[in-house]
């Protein structure tokens, strides 16, 4: 299966007062048609910057995307596209849904206008045709009375409904890839579940690939085919969903899984990973997880590459080569 989207060695540096911040540092992954890949990590691990870089949405400066980075969408490097060609990829090829449904809609424009705007940006359609498409899309994302909803303004809708509208906006041009950055974080838990269900269903119906960005392993578990765990601007482990949950190979992944509170066992304090993500201006030398890792030993002073742990599973940890860890 050839990849629809292939990211090779993506590096994004921000110029800051404290020196260059290597927010994304050599991230590579591939996304096949119809596949869902979840990018999981803590705040500050570089997930959102990765997503924004894919569509060239980072302000440059202060961001600086390494010219050697490649973002191949259907074989073309998005990072080399300019002006009109780039505009056409955005929305029609790859679309993005943002985190905050409250602020991602323009408060002074009607819902209908904001959706038809996307259609008209990409296709030659009449105003009426665009409105029909918008209404169909609103029906598809499960908004009651879509025709009437076209004339509404964002403040008249609840958070869950707004997120549905944002989905409709993103999907109305049938993109091949949907990038969803924390699409449910700002929503109530019950609404979260509905939106995730909707996402899974839409992916199925529209046959698109999805890159889901989340800090919540539970969400990734519910919807992703493959999961990539990010830490310190790098991927530290990628595996299929089943493998990752059954046999995590990176201590960080294990820590994340352990830190998830369980509802089915006796109440106990959740074991947290000690410490916090270091700032991107000062990554530790060697393995970036070393200062927080319970297994760290001398070898970790050399940065490990992504090592093949099993079929379709890679982990950035020397433990993959030396399962026993530190020689006694």
């Amino acid at each position: 299966m050839t990849a629809l989207l292939e990211v090779r060695d993506l590096r994004v540096t921000f110029r800051t007062a404290d020196g260059p911040a290597r927010a994304v540092d050599g991230v590579s992954f591939a996304l096949a048609a119809g596949e869902t890949l979840a990018l999981v990590g803590e705040s500050g691990s570089g997930k959102t910057v990765t997503a924004l870089a894919l569509l060239r949405l980072l302000a440059e400066p202060p961001a600086d995307v390494d010219p050697a980075s490649r973002v191949l969408f259907e074989g073309r490097d998005v990072l080399q596209l300019d002006g009109e060609a780039l505009r056409r990829v955005r929305g029609a090829g790859m679309a993005m849904v943002f985190q905050e449904p409250m602020t991602s809609l323009n408060p002074v424009l009607s819902i209908g206008l904001q959706i038809t705007e996307t259609v008209q940006a990409h296709e030659r359609v009449t105003r009426r045709g665009a409105r029909d498409r918008a209404a169909d899309m609103l029906a598809l994302v499960g908004l009651p009375d879509p025709r009437a909803a076209l004339g509404r303004y964002p403040h008249e809708l609840s958070g869950g409904m707004r997120q549905r509208v944002l989905l409709a906006m993103a999907l109305v041009c049938r993109p091949r890839v949907l990038i969803a950055d924390e699409p449910t974080t700002a929503l109530d838990v019950t609404v979260q579940a509905q939106i995730l269900e909707l996402l899974a269903e839409l992916r199925e119906r529209l046959g698109m690939a999805m890159l889901l960005i989340t800090h919540n392993l539970g969400i990734a578990a519910g919807i992703a085919d493959r999961i990539a765990v990010m830490y310190g601007g790098q991927l530290v482990e990628t595996a299929s969903r089943q493998t990752l949950f059954r046999e995590p190979r990176h201590p960080y992944t294990l820590g994340l899984l352990r830190a998830a509170p369980r509802l089915d066992g006796p109440a106990a304090p959740t074991p947290a990973i000690p410490g916090a993500v270091p700032p991107a201006t000062a990554w530790p030398t060697g393995c970036r997880f070393r200062p927080r890792c319970p297994h760290a030993w001398a070898r970790c002073e050399t940065a490990p590459p992504l090592l093949e742990a099993a079929t379709a599973q890679q982990a950035r940890c020397w433990l993959v080569e030396q399962p026993g860890g530190a020689p006694a």
């Binding site: 056409r88 943002f98 002074v108 904001q114 705007e117 993103a170 041009c173």
Partner: peptide, 26 residues
């Protein structure tokens, strides 16, 4: 710097359109 400006750009709105439609009304 509003999110809806980023959202519009992410879905392929041209700079001119973003300025006239999303910024000017403000």
């Amino acid at each position: 710097d509003r999110e809806y400006v980023a959202a519009a750009r992410a879905l392929g709105a041209s700079a001119r359109r973003v300025v006239l439609r999303h910024v000017l009304p403000n």
